[in-house]
Design a protein around this nucleic acid. Structure first.
Lengths: 339, 339
DNA sequence: TTATAAATTGTTATCCTTTTCAAAAAGGAT
DNA sequence: ATCCTTTTTGAAAAGGATAACAATTTATAA
């Protein structure tokens, strides 16, 4: 038990050759005679030799791994993004390590620190909701480690990003509600500083103005990102004299809250009140009624992010090629808005 | 840009002392004079020195990290388990790396391989549904790497485990249905070979016999682990002449299918048909009606698993102390079974 | 003042691989 | 047989840190 892993040295000794020869033979270096190469590879297989990635990384200064920081793992959106990243990483022979910031700045910083310490070859990250300072991101750049931000990004940061076309997506969602006959569409959103909130707001306003509808600021409700908060906000809105006839929620969580409140107050969905969410979360499909939502093509987001990262990693001459990829979202119409 | 990280050697040179002195000073070795210690630590902070974990791991043969393999990340159960593991790992100053097998044997093997290669100090794993061979698990043991299995385990494996008391939990769920007046309780389950399926089956049967109810094998339905499969199975069961008056589903996913089918057929829940699921998934709370379910205390499962692992890791003399921790589940009564 | 113990610091090997530079062996031409 | 290539292999340093052992300095006692 606890048998020491076999090293390149063991092979060298058994074959009475030098370690450098073994090292070269293992990577099929043509300088080594076919005979030796085969002998080495055969023995390596027999002994179940597996290179020590720590030693390799230490020597080559490359870990062949990339770090991914997401705000939450319990989220089908992020889980799918990770899958997309994984696919591309796989194709390049890279491993990925995922860690979650749990929407906390300190945790995010810790994760980044850990990845930098582990000498990751690149980092893909989505900012936590609490992130309002960017020193840790700057540190990554300073160390010359390629980085790509996705989904939750910041205009203050001059790095490659994969972003959703939030304005267009919100525009599509709101237009869909308008075309369904809605006249007064409430917008359930979160705190002001989040970039995607700003963009979706823009889409919301644009869609309204495109159809010649005046903006009613009182229909915009800032809530926390919880079902209960959205529920409360919806209750408030629906008990007004000129109540909204539709809700556009900035995510499915808030849409769920809106639906729960609407049902409790006895309004019919979608006849009296239509609802559209955002994200195409798993739950949105199984709610009663099922929730119309915007699918953000998360896997594609992941793939794009990984592609941008590998682009940077392959560009040796620290060409500060900062690029931005846009992934569009698709409207998925379900019972909550289908008339 | 791309400035080389500062090493122990840089500090040594700037201070005109040897690297070993620096190394010792940094870890507060009392052999080093307070004066030097402080000077070193001060400079280290100034230069933002951060030890290279690769080098440390290579030298000490310890990575100070543990690998976690889960069948899926998109699952609040596993996400919570991971959180529990993380807590305990944090307390011990360990990092964790999570990877998902996506319910595939090959991926699971690859993940394990990767972790072994990375010289993880321990591995915590939950078997994928597809895992029917255990060579990769044996390999872990052979290499002397501590391992703990949780949730999805196998009786064939002689390793430490954290298991749910599935039989007791199923017993509680079924008893609850019986006490609500159910007489014919259907059991929606999965393929036969899964250990927890077997155990929950045992609890199901025991609960029935405890109340003197004869087992009706035709009420046991094996479906795939999808909502649709459960929906279909439920449709079939409910359209029989002597239909069941309650469903016990082996997980919430299947319970959702059961509820959808029941509603479509126009039966009232819970009056005509009661439903209890398993896992306390996020969705179970927000379904209409909300679903009664068994909460498996996932965070506790994670903490227990980590504790067992650290126990093994601290027991130097390869004491094959194989232990098993049982985490009980709590019944959560919601609308789907509350009369 | 010197011998001796204690405190402090340095030297060097080591972890496992990769890689540069050098050396040896083999082949060919003269 | 000798010299020059071309192939093939080896020696050794490097990567960043730790630790056993050795060496040095300082303090203490005689």
């Amino acid at each position: 038990m606890a048998n020491r892993p076999v090293t390149i040295k063991d092979i060298a000794e058994k074959l009475s050759i030098s370690v450098s020869t073994v090292s070269r033979a293992l990577k099929n270096n043509p300088e080594i005679s076919l005979q030796t190469r085969e002998a080495v590879q055969k023995l390596a297989k027999e002994l179940k030799y597996r290179p020590n990635p720590l030693a390799v990384a230490l020597k080559t200064q490359k870990s062949n791994a990339i770090g991914v920081v997401v705000p939450q793992i319990v989220s089908s959106f992020y889980a799918s993004v990770v899958k997309g990243i994984e696919q591309v990483a796989d194709e390049h022979g890279y491993q990925i390590f995922v860690s979650s910031s749990n929407e906390k700045l300190e945790k995010e910083q810790k994760n980044v620190d850990g990845f930098l310490n582990m000498r990751m070859d690149g980092i893909i990250l989505s900012l936590s909701r609490a992130t309002n300072t960017y020193d840790h991101i700057h540190k990554i750049k300073e160390m010359g480690v390629p980085i790509v931000l996705f989904d939750r990004t910041s205009k203050e940061l001059d790095v490659s990003k994969v972003v959703a076309d939030d304005a267009a997506a919100a525009h599509a969602a709101v237009t869909h509600l308008l075309e369904g006959g809605a006249k007064r569409i409430a917008f359930l959103t979160g705190p002001e500083y989040m970039l995607y909130g700003v963009n979706r707001m823009r889409g919301y306003k644009q869609a309204l103005s495109d159809k010649g509808i005046d903006l009613d600021e009182t229909l915009i409700s800032r809530c926390e990102f919880t079902v209960d908060s959205a529920k409360q906000a919806t209750m408030d809105l629906l008990s007004r004299s000129n109540r909204p006839d539709a809700f556009f929620a900035i995510n499915d969580e808030l849409a769920i809250g809106a639906i729960m409140a609407t049902k409790e107050l006895g309004f019919k969905i979608p006849e009296e009140v239509a609802v559209v969410g955002f994200s195409n979360s798993r739950r949105s499909r199984y709610m009663e009624p099922s929730i119309s939502t915007m699918d953000q093509n998360p896997k594609l987001v992941g793939r794009e992010a990984a592609n941008l990262l590998f682009e940077q990693m392959e560009d040796k001459p620290d060409s500060d090629k900062v690029r931005e990829a846009v992934v569009h979202a698709d409207l998925i119409i379900r019972a909550s808005s289908e008339k």
